[in-house]
Amino acid sequence: MSYLIDIILIALGAALINNFVLHYFVGICPFVGVSRRIDMAFGMGCAVTFVITIAAFISWAITTFVLVPGAPLSRWIAGFFVPAETAAGIDLTILSYIVYILAISSSVQFVEMYVRKFYPPLYKSFGVYLPLITTNCAILFACLTIMSNIVGVDDPSAAWDLGRSLILAIFGGVGFTIAIVIMAGIREELDLCDVPEPFKGAGITMIVSGIMALAFMGFTGVDSGLKKALTAEKPSAAARIEEHPAEAIIAAQKTTMPTAEQSHP
């Protein structure tokens, strides 16, 4: 039940509340470039959703099994060369950006080849957008969000699983499609309007996006309200206390004490 609530909140957050384009500003390039006609915009949206899902799957797998400290695959491979306890502490997160970008661009290449060979009609409808998508920030942004929810969490059991990652990616893509299709609809109408010369093209698109972003801000708070309505707090049952290893304590003692009064940085 709580898992289902989690999924609903992630989906809602990615598609509407924190819309990729209008809240995080990722994927602006196609948003400005391919939003002249509704059918093209929809094709682009579908292509992004498709690629983002594949990229999310790959990056989730790589992060969980290879990159995260103590990941099973890297531990197993390192186990052949170094003692087991060194292998357990192996941390490859520094390589994450390189790995993600290479994974994204090669998967886009493969998808393009596969689709062109086996589904020519599909290739005709959105294949032309595929190469453009490699440098679309939205894809890498989804990978990074998934990574920060696996590597950056205090509690290992709260790390995102495959389901959550895929939901984020799919609904992030849906949110992108919603935004770009609405934009294309508005721009088709704008062609008939008398826009001042300097604002034609990107200028008016940005101002319209500003108004759309304002409208999408109306969704803020929906998730907190929904979460309150769906979850009922239950009293705690049992507790367990674990002491941290010695390194943490040493680090703690080395800390310089603060002198400035408390103010938020």
């Binding site: 509690d155 709260a158 239950k234 206390i241 941290h244």
Partner: peptide, 16 residues
């Protein structure tokens, strides 16, 4: 200052 990790069992799930 000693960091600890406290796990609390809540609704069948451990919250840390």
């Amino acid at each position: 200052i000693k960091p600890l990790s406290v796990g609390v069992e809540k609704a069948g799930k451990t919250v840390r």
